[in-house]
Design a protein around this nucleic acid. Sequence first.
DNA 1: CATGAATGAGTCTTCATTCAT
DNA 2: GATGAATGAAGACTCATTCAT
Lengths: 211, 211, 211, 211
Amino acid sequence: MTNGKRCRLFEGRRQRRISRRRDEILKAAACVFATKGYAGSTIKEIAAQADIAEGTLYNYFDGKREILLAIVNASQAPLETMLQEVCELREREDVIALAEKIFDVLISQTPFTRTLMAEAWLDDVILQDVVMGRLQRIGQHLQAFITARIADGAFRPVDPVLTSWMVIGMFSAIVIPILRGHTPVPSPERRRALAEAAVDLLLDGIRVREG
Amino acid sequence: MTNGKRCRLFEGRRQRRISRRRDEILKAAACVFATKGYAGSTIKEIAAQADIAEGTLYNYFDGKREILLAIVNASQAPLETMLQEVCELREREDVIALAEKIFDVLISQTPFTRTLMAEAWLDDVILQDVVMGRLQRIGQHLQAFITARIADGAFRPVDPVLTSWMVIGMFSAIVIPILRGHTPVPSPERRRALAEAAVDLLLDGIRVREG
Amino acid sequence: MTNGKRCRLFEGRRQRRISRRRDEILKAAACVFATKGYAGSTIKEIAAQADIAEGTLYNYFDGKREILLAIVNASQAPLETMLQEVCELREREDVIALAEKIFDVLISQTPFTRTLMAEAWLDDVILQDVVMGRLQRIGQHLQAFITARIADGAFRPVDPVLTSWMVIGMFSAIVIPILRGHTPVPSPERRRALAEAAVDLLLDGIRVREG
Amino acid sequence: MTNGKRCRLFEGRRQRRISRRRDEILKAAACVFATKGYAGSTIKEIAAQADIAEGTLYNYFDGKREILLAIVNASQAPLETMLQEVCELREREDVIALAEKIFDVLISQTPFTRTLMAEAWLDDVILQDVVMGRLQRIGQHLQAFITARIADGAFRPVDPVLTSWMVIGMFSAIVIPILRGHTPVPSPERRRALAEAAVDLLLDGIRVREG
DNA sequence: CATGAATGAGTCTTCATTCAT
DNA sequence: GATGAATGAAGACTCATTCAT
């Protein structure tokens, strides 16, 4: 008798195989959800996209809704990893770097982000717990930056919350058309240029300095 | 049958009645689509919301898809009316006024706007023909304003297209949470304050003027 | 405008039509459940048996389970009506008459009874709330009869509960093979003969009177 | 491969191991079938109850249906063994002893009996070949007893077939609620008392002897 | 032999659309 | 025109069975 649980040396391999397959399914589902929406997508399409049978899908997820939630959660990790590397924003350059990193993360996982954004328009849980949570996470960095610069006299005494929110809006206006597939994915150089232009606009406005 | 075409004097009244009923249905459908999404809504819900029978709905629209398209088109008129009143943006005040007007239009027809925004994430036709069309329509005003002020030396030589796009992003960041129901609808005074803050940020940035 | 709710004179007719259709579906479903069991039956079969489309079925019942419960409840009414006519059992003849009536009721609605009996083996709710409830209802009559006759010295001092329960078993042994389709449905004369034989056995036993 | 047929000395042990495992599976399956019914049970549940993998089950049985049939057949052996020990019913005591033995056999293998009874309502093969077969087997003993006692003048000239059938009904009324889990399993003393009460009722009826 | 992931036919249920009243 | 019952195609999900490891 080889013992019901198989040799433990193989357990790890099995777990990795399951994990890999789950990721494949999530990726396939994200692609389908991103273009047809959650309610407009079918399990059949997702299974076809993942190149497995419909029933197999239920060996990895409890149902359609759980796939959506797994996508939402999976899209959290890369952003979180990235944000933890952000120490403190001190200079113009720091903000540009942050913007670039966020661009990279969002665009590198486009189907996940797109699924998230589309569903946040309809699902209050996703809006509150996920999208708003992340935006506020980013907003905290920006607000800390703004507040500090106001304190040291470099910035005018603007409302940090409102301002950070509008900064997020500015950057969103750049990222969303790309995510949505309306604008082609920009080269890294172009991304940097966009980030710089946005930050410059933010810092100095468009009006000519009268001084 | 008393007469094939009815008395012509009553034709107008009949047309108005039909038109009124169509609007009621659209309004009801927009409310349902706004919260559940197109694919997640049912004809039964829409009919219940409009307080008519399901079959009646098909006397006014060819099908579910046609209702969506009618909503999309119906949301065009108010914005268009408003934009036609906008002559030329010359001053800070003009831009603020434009922003306020757009706020008013979008928020006064929240269910329509929300349906539109949610569906634009999924439907290429709606994105291209409707949402992008309108944003470019607004962008043209902004770009003309920016270009003119650059020409007369009031503005720095920024890229008008990119800048106008980011301005739209800033204002979107204010409007979207309201439309989405995340932020309560602001009072007219608050709206004006928000518009002013955004325009000021746009014009002068947040950095202290060194002059 | 003919007023949304139609003329009230037609409401009654509509209600009757719905009620009639519900009964048809219940009858069809009972036939299917009786031979294949609840879990082994499909909505498709029931719909085919009732000669309607699958979807139509859901206009009359919330789901498969609700059909089962409706069958169970529908089978209650005839028995209840019958039991309410039973005044008090006084003579041998009264008991025979009761047995005959119960035979008639159970057999006249065979598919319902059979569905009920088969499901009571699996479903605790049906067993407790329905089958046991009815058996106890009948048992009460029998116990009252037995107790009264013991009191007036006609019966030996047996345990009324146990005895009534065994009487039910005796009669069940006659009815069940008929319901189950193992024994052909007996003629009214034969039914009476069976009831008489059972009651005689019950009253006097099989042993020869030694007196 | 070291040898095609293994050492013959070990064949018997292997057969016993297989047989033991089959019995374990049958026991597990009977428990599941007894409470959920055949159609309502899944292979996964049975495998879990037997603490083996789903696939393993197919090494011992050809499919779900075969497990049911094996349960039905397995429940035959103990009853048969018991019935072969019954010589001839001569006295009241013999009948009581038979009843007690049948109680013991049925209750000691409750899940098997229950599966059998529930399925006999739906499956004609099981009803005919198995349940009716066994009841007639028991009935023969009873009929022989009754016929003999009529012949020697101890019993009245009742119909032996009908009477034996109603006796079975009486005893069923005691056993079924226990099997079904509605009545707690009675102690051996209580079982004897029930058997005695039933036989007494059967022999002497409930009416007071007029002699 | 044991395992359990893969499969896809089959189940219950929903819903856009039609049509007789 | 208004109604809502009827329809059946399509969707999410289940499960008996197979088979590679």
